[in-house]
């Protein structure tokens, strides 16, 4: 501790040339002052605060990812221990040859893009409507945001009832309108869109809140200037207001896409098992099924790494964008 206090004093007087001029005793090389110079003046002193969480996160998050990568290079399956002596890309080759994997990857991609775009559009629409000084604005805002507070499990149960072939609300409504019943969950061509709709129901409120914050940051004069400039309401939103929501759009998209990749909970609860309805298998469900139902540890790890890379592909550009704007 005394050492820490000492270096604290020294670093205050540290000169750009690396010496600590006032203090004759410490003119020689010191690893602590060298570290401080490299990483900032209180690097060592503050380490007791950031080092423990840094190590824990490093081990349990990044360590786990690396371990996962290692396992994906083995042929580990069933019980026992993985053999780290024989590392190859066999499991990735197997994935590319597995039509189940390809289907799951395509479904993941459709869900990712479709869900994100539709939810953004709906959220933007709701936000614009709510922003136009309507009555009961706070009530509407709360109603739209409420689904966001439910867990995936509740949403899945709820929509399982809604989509039920015989007694579901949706089928009751459309049969009463004279149309035939639709097998929302059982039809492999439809189920993915039904899932997407349920997820959109849950997250449109979130997108709305993000856009609403963005809209509130735009000064009234911009609306007025656009009107006086001769723009109709639609043109005003299209050319003046929506382009200013770029930041909100990016933030909301990243969160929505990450949720889409995590849709495992939703699909798991929808059927109460590892095997989602035909046509709705995504990489997340495939990964868990391969690992815990089939004990194909190495193969599941390879799927996990693929999913990880997809996430990185989304978050990476966002971080880069924020870094360029000086926010990181």
């Amino acid at each position: 501790m005394t050492q820490n206090t000492d270096t604290g004093d020294d670093s205050g007087d540290a000169l750009p040339d690396g010496g600590v001029a006032e203090d004759g005793q410490r003119s020689g090389f010191s690893p602590i002052s060298a570290l401080n110079e490299r990483f900032g003046s209180d690097f060592v002193e503050s380490s007791q605060f950031w080092l423990p969480p840094f190590l824990l996160v490093g081990l349990f998050v990044y360590g786990a990812i690396i371990w996962n990568l290692l396992i994906s290079l083995t042929d580990f399956t069933g019980f026992g221990t993985p053999d780290y002596g024989d590392l190859d890309l066999e499991m990735y080759g197997r994935a590319l040859a597995d039509s189940g994997f390809i289907d799951a990857a395509i479904n993941t991609f459709i869900l990712l893009v479709g869900f994100t775009l539709v939810t953004l559009a709906l959220g933007l629409g709701l936000a614009i409507l709510i922003d136009r000084n309507i009555r009961f604005e706070n009530t509407f805002r709360t109603i739209y945001l409420l689904p966001m507070s439910l867990s995936f499990v509740v949403t899945a149960q709820f929509w399982a009832w809604m989509f039920n072939f015989n007694n579901g609300v949706i089928n009751i409504v459309i049969t009463s309108l004279g149309f035939g019943r639709v097998d929302w969950i059982g039809n492999p061509d439809i189920v993915l869109w039904a899932v997407m709709f349920a997820l959109m129901w849950q997250f449109a409120g979130y997108a709305m809140v993000v856009f609403l914050a963005g809209l509130r940051a735009i000064p009234n004069e911009h609306y007025e200037a656009a009107k006086v400039d001769g723009a109709s309401t639609v043109r005003m939103y299209w050319r003046v207001i929506i382009p200013q929501l770029k930041g909100s759009t990016i933030s909301a998209s990243v969160v929505l896409m990450v949720f889409a990749l995590k849709a495992f909970d939703f699909l798991y609860s929808l059927v109460g098992g590892y095997r989602p309805p035909n046509g709705a298998d995504i990489l997340a469900t495939k990964m868990v099924r391969e690992a815990y139902a089939n004990l194909n540890w190495a193969y599941a790890s390879a799927v996990a790494i693929t999913l990880f890379l997809m996430t990185l592909g989304i978050v990476g550009p966002y971080l880069y964008y924020q870094y360029n704007r000086g926010n990181l």
Binding site: H222, V228, Q244
Partner: peptide, 20 residues
């Protein structure tokens, strides 16, 4: 008559330039 059809131009105190 709506503002967009009045053939007027307005200068605002805050200028209200479109930032994008």
């Amino acid at each position: 008559v709506k503002p967009q059809h009045r053939d007027i131009a307005m200068v605002f105190q805050s200028y209200a330039l479109y930032p994008h």
